[in-house]
Amino acid sequence: MAEDADRKEVAEKRRHRLFKYLRKEVLPTAFCPGCGCGIVLNCYAHAVDELQLDPNDIVAVTGIGCSSWIPSPYFLGDTLHTTHGRPIPFATGVKVMQPDKTVVVIAGDGDLIGIGGNHLIHAARRNIDIKVFLVNNLIYGMTGGQLAPTTPLGISTTTSPHGNVEHPFEIAELVAAAGASYVARWTTYHVFPLMESMQKALTKKGFCFLEIRSQCPISYGRRVGQRTGSEALQEYKESSVRIEDAAEMSPEELEGKIIIGKLIEREKEEFTGNLRKLNVELRTKKTGRSPEEWSLS
């Protein structure tokens, strides 16, 4: 009996270590059973825990959709739950005014690519120091499974009952080409590399982008024969190809595969630093006083 009590106590301590990053009064989550959003939240909480970051130094910005629920309400920290598709403009504002904070955007594909696609491309071009974790479930899940710009060719959805005739976005490649500092793609099955990648993104300067392929058993999975989270994860396990191996494969062999790994990592000048430098330079020239002599008025 005494052993049992000890065990409970140790577990409680360990659980408490993780739960200090979560609003535990709202747990269990509102996600469907087997949803990938919970796995992303889990990896994110573990990544923040491993880095020993103070949650008060993180500002999480999010939009509308299932995956926007990951930081708000579950992650304990400052959160902005913004209008549909606009988390990146809000995050840009936060980062420019509070450059010391780590600004994280966690949102879905409908939000970041569908509604706010242009914001994403331009934030990558500016190379502003925000971390974008895109949870890509290939569909608009919350509203009942409508066609998203990431839905693969031929899949029937609520708004494409006879099959999708549009090609999907290859979003990680797009963001890498637009000029981001760090881009990687993982799935919810690859939890350990995903966690390491999140740590890398949280500590690297510049625009960091992670595409996380995630399952939606309710709105997407039932249309493609992945009715449970396990079936989708099994599919990810079997159809994922490391980017190093993909370089030696032909386009026919890569058909239907998910290329995982780090797409790009480079050092590049960052937007907020450049903006601040220019600001100081012009203000010094205009007032004739160095930044130390500036008063708040």
């Binding site: 659980r15 993780l18 949803c35 919970g38 889990n42 994860l233």
Partner: peptide, 15 residues
């Protein structure tokens, strides 16, 4: 700790 990280509900803790 694979189950701990794969659990979407924080239900499993490995010590």
């Amino acid at each position: 700790r694979l189950c701990e990280l794969l659990c979407p509900e924080f239900s499993i803790i490995i010590i």
